[in-house]
Design a binder for these strands. Structure first.
Lengths: 199, 199, 199, 199
DNA sequence: CACTAAACGAGACGGTACGTCGAGTCTTGGA
DNA sequence: TCCAAGACTCGACGTACCGTCTCGTTTAGTG
């Protein structure tokens, strides 16, 4: 009833996966920029039209492939306090970006600068998923009073993660665990209730 | 003495400028990604080899062209206090990035994600120049005591400008004058002496 | 007893005819060369494999379709004399080739140049059928003495029909009724008993 | 003065010849139909665009290649009489078509059935050149009175060469030297003055 | 003042990858 | 068992740029 496909050979899940994993292999081996549809087809042992049948651009394929494999699960551990939770999460994000995913994330964002679709997909499918828990923690902090209740959550997110992506993308200074530590220490100061200053 | 070229037709400054301005015109018209050497040559009325003679890649040409024209001079006005100076400068940077240069900067950074040269040139020729005064202001603030004297200047830079570039590059939230205002208000809190905490 | 098919869905005569007539429609609309199996399947509302099940190549399908519809019946009228009969028949062949079938015949022969099967099928199924009566007339003429009794029938056929197909295929001069007339007048001269020359 | 090309790298005669001879090699090895631009490029060690720069279709390339190499010089020997000359020339044409050129000629004509350009080029560049002398001989025969002075030269050409190409293209009977002989013997009868009949 | 040598425009070169089309095969579910 | 639908691999298509390579033509400065 809800089955819309009436007839026809069903999509080959085998080919589908072969394409995704070939894409991932190539993304790890070379710059995303230099990954070509042709190369993916060859690596996957698949006809090029098969790729074009299911993805309308290299970008959506790259996104799919990235999310399919590297798509990082950053489990958000319940911590005793919001501040502790933030510290912990920043550590994990930095750790993730220090790994091979970091370069790929950066390159995808890079591609996105000249292709709005990529950026949009990236935000919707990777970003918002990854950061939803972080937003929740900030809200939690605002409720408990540990963070300024007037704090704009979007701004808070940018204060925390902006510097991280900044370093990732500009590369003027390396990302590192230590950076994560000192960053959070400082940034937390900006998130606390202003009243404390009044003391 | 160091002049090695003895004879021969000297480099045509005319062609040089034609190439740079053609590049700028094209960068404004389309994505940097889609600017081609071929297109530049045609637009400039110049042979392709002439471009390759003087630039070894599209990227360095793009950088040169960008710096040649759009290269923003952000004059750093002396202000009564470091904090005021920071606020003022952030406002100007955001204003700059809101203009047409913003997209180009973003695209260059984007290209840089798959080409280390671009990123390096970008940092050396645009970035460090643009932000040298900002660093100076932070140092000044540390001296006057308005900012924490133990503050790492690099970290401070990232705290201030990270969120801006983050928004520029990810596009999850728009850059705006208001953002500049609230951003600095918050971020300044993170830069102040921790002594207040000692209370 | 001779029915070997025990069970299963019987062959759809409907589909069979749909394919043939779709092919004819397309052959009339475009060059045989540009008729594709894909196009036929779509036009006939039929799956591509169904076509491959019954015809092993586009060529045999095209032949079948051509014979199925356009396959010209050139009824051979009994005439008082062999020479009259030849004249009459040439007229009819030319008339046929001047019509839409002419182009299709030419195109099939054209395809045949790079595919021996086509040519063979064409000869066996179209050609020999069409020209069997003509051969009979020539034999008749040889018997009555109107034509040279030593005349090789194959040669005679080529003398008569060669020039017609020559014009059809090369196109250096147009086929026409007049051509048919003058052609036969001349060619008959070559078929008569040589003895007449001895006079 | 008549030099129109002002600047730019001149066309590589090397590449030009490599393409032509590669095409010829492939045409001899496989059906013209199955010769691909890609294959030619590879065989010639040449980039595909180089071919497209100079030929707008496979057909014109094939024609050029054919004329470049196989382009048969059928020297027309002066004979004592027109009839002898015709016999001699028919022999040579048949001999030519019996060789490897025959198949290629047939295939080109075949391609021409679905592409008017090919046929036109074929007629203009191969056909008319090849047959100009034959026409001259017929005219000569008409002048000397050996051939019917009222004979239409076009028709005469078709009577002579029609049967040959007919066999070449239909393949119902083989071309052969003997065929050439008996053909001319008969066909000459049709070309002689009709007056003989009056006797 | 002629000569020389570098830089110029033009554009052809061998390539790579693009996105599309059609061929012929294979695999479903339904009739 | 046959059908429609349609996904599959394969390979050629014609195009856009790439970066390199001649060409013949300026155009300074040197000898």
């Amino acid at each position: 009833m809800e089955n819309e496909r009436k007839a026809g050979r069903p999509r080959s899940e085998e080919a589908h996966q072969a394409i995704l994993s070939a894409t991932n292999r190539l993304m790890e081996a070379t710059a995303v920029r230099n990954v070509t549809i042709e190369g993916i087809a060859k690596e996957a042992g698949v006809g090029r039209p098969t790729i074009y049948r299911w993805w309308d651009s290299k970008c959506s394929l790259v996104m799919d492939a990235f999310l399919d494999s590297a798509a990082p699960k950053i489990p958000f551990p319940k911590k005793k306090s919001p501040v502790e939770a933030i510290k912990e999460q920043v550590k994990r994000v930095v750790k993730l970006l220090l790994g091979p995913s970091g370069r790929i994330v950066a390159e995808i964002i890079g591609e996105g600068q000249s292709d709005a679709h990529v950026l949009e997909e990236f935000r919707e499918r990777f970003f918002s998923k990854l950061f939803a828990p972080a937003r929740a923690v900030i809200e939690w902090g605002k409720e408990t009073g540990e963070l300024d209740e007037n704090l704009d959550t979007d701004l808070a997110m940018d204060l925390i993660y902006g510097p991280i992506y900044y370093r990732l993308l500009i590369g003027h200074q390396p990302l590192s665990k230590d950076f994560a530590t000192v960053l959070t220490e400082r940034v937390i100061m900006a998130l606390k209730p202003i009243s404390s200053k009044a003391l």
